[in-house]
Computed example of a mutant assay.
Amino acid sequence: MAVFTPVTEDDARALLRRYQLGELVALRGITAGIENTNYFLDTTGGAYVLTLFEVLTAEQLPFYIELMHHLAGRGVPVPEPQTLLDGTRLTELNGKPAAIVTRLSGGYEPEPGPAHCALAGQTLARAHLAAQDFPIHQPNLRGLDWWKATAPALAPFLDPGQAALLQGTLDEQIAFAASGAPARLPYGPAHCDLFRDNVLFDGTFESPHMGGFIDFYFAGCDTWLFDVAVSVNDWCIHRATGAFVRRRLEAWLQAYHAVRPFTEEERAAWPAMLRAAALRFWISRLYDFHLPRPAQTLKPHDPRHFERILRLRTEQPAPALPRP
Rank of each mutant, 00 (worst) to 15 (best):
F4Y: 14
F4I: 13
T5V: 07
T5I: 04
P6A: 05
V7T: 06
V7Y: 10
V7R: 11
V7K: 12
T8R: 12
L15A: 09
R17A: 11
R18I: 00
A26S: 15
G29A: 15
I30S: 04
T31L: 14
T37D: 02
T37F: 02
N38C: 09
N38I: 09
L41Y: 02
D42Y: 09
D42I: 02
T44P: 06
V49G: 12
F53P: 11
A58E: 15
A58Q: 13
E59F: 04
Q60L: 04
Q60Y: 02
P62A: 10
M68L: 03
L71E: 05
A72P: 07
G73R: 06
P79A: 12
E80F: 01
P81A: 06
D86W: 13
G87E: 10
T88P: 01
R89C: 10
N94H: 12
A98R: 04
V101Q: 10
T102L: 05
E111Q: 13
G113P: 01
A115F: 00
A120I: 12
G121A: 05
Q122M: 13
A125V: 06
R126G: 03
A127N: 08
A127G: 07
Q138P: 04
N140Y: 14
K148S: 09
A153R: 15
L154Y: 06
D159L: 01
Q162L: 03
Q162P: 00
Q167C: 01
G168H: 03
D171A: 14
D171R: 08
I174T: 15
F176I: 02
A178M: 01
R184P: 00
G188C: 02
P189R: 04
A190C: 15
H191P: 10
H191K: 13
L194R: 10
D202H: 05
D202N: 15
G203V: 05
T204H: 09
T204W: 08
T204R: 08
F205L: 09
E206Q: 14
S207F: 01
P208A: 04
P208N: 03
H209Y: 00
G212I: 10
D215I: 09
F218M: 13
A219V: 07
D222S: 15
D222Q: 14
F226W: 04
F226Y: 15
S231E: 06
S231G: 12
V232A: 07
R239S: 04
A240F: 06
T241K: 02
G242Q: 10
E250R: 15
E250G: 00
A251Y: 13
L253K: 06
L253T: 13
Q254T: 13
H257V: 09
H257R: 11
V259F: 00
V259W: 00
R260W: 09
T263I: 08
T263W: 04
E264G: 03
E264Y: 02
E265V: 01
E266Y: 05
A269W: 05
A269K: 10
W270C: 08
L274T: 07
A278S: 14
A278E: 08
W282R: 06
W282S: 03
I283M: 03
I283W: 08
R285D: 12
F289W: 15
H290Q: 06
P292L: 09
A295I: 10
L298C: 08
P303Q: 02
F306G: 01
R308L: 07
I309D: 06
R311H: 07
L312R: 14
T314A: 14
T314N: 11
E315W: 02
E315M: 03
P319S: 12
P324N: 10
